[in-house]
């Protein structure tokens, strides 16, 4: 347990190691650690930001989807309405056409009837005259009795 030069040697050694540590070890590791801390903090905040961005994007996407759905629904509704309208129009037109055809047919029928009636009238006149001729046994002037024949035909 002698105190000797080791004391001074140890002091010098100690100072050299402290100097080395201060110059070549501590700042390097400390800076690297600080840089990493900052990097991690930045990474975390970036992740946070990205998360928020994602949420926003999702919100936007879902709202867009909703809008699109609404639009689609309105288009479908419109289309449905239009279709119904077309069907209605077609129906109306069909009915009109039908009516028109019916009217034409009726008119034709009426015409035909009139024509038949006319024909019948003339023939009835002739027949009546012929009948009367036969009954009377003599010729009758058709023109002298036209009014009678016409009245007869009118009654038909």
């Amino acid at each position: 347990m002698n105190i000797n030069l080791t004391l001074i040697g140890q002091s010098i050694t100690f100072l050299i190691f402290v100097w080395f540590c201060m110059k070549f070890v501590w700042p390097f590791i400390r800076n690297a650690m600080d840089a990493r801390t900052q990097q991690i903090a930045e990474g975390l905040s970036a992740a946070e930001r990205a998360h928020r961005d994602l949420e926003l994007a999702q919100d936007r996407a879902s709202s867009q989807l909703k809008e699109a759905k609404a639009e689609v629904a309105s288009i479908i509704e419109q289309a449905n309405r239009r279709a119904a309208q077309i069907v209605d129009e077609a129906k109306d037109r069909a009915r009109e056409e039908g009516e028109r055809i019916k009217a034409a047919a009726q008119a034709e029928i009426e015409q035909e009837t009139n024509r038949a009636r006319e024909q019948l009238r003339t023939q009835v006149g002739v027949l009546a005259v012929a009948g009367a001729e036969r009954i009377l046994g003599r010729a009758i002037d058709v023109n002298a009795h036209r009014d009678i024949v016409d009245r007869l035909a009118q009654e038909l």
Binding site: F20, F24, A32
Partner: peptide, 19 residues
């Protein structure tokens, strides 16, 4: 002491180079 310096210096160099 030299062992300490060598070990820590090695780590210091690695830490400074490796991000």
């Amino acid at each position: 002491g030299v062992l300490f310096c060598w070990l820590f210096r090695r780590v210091a160099v690695k830490a400074a180079a490796n991000k």
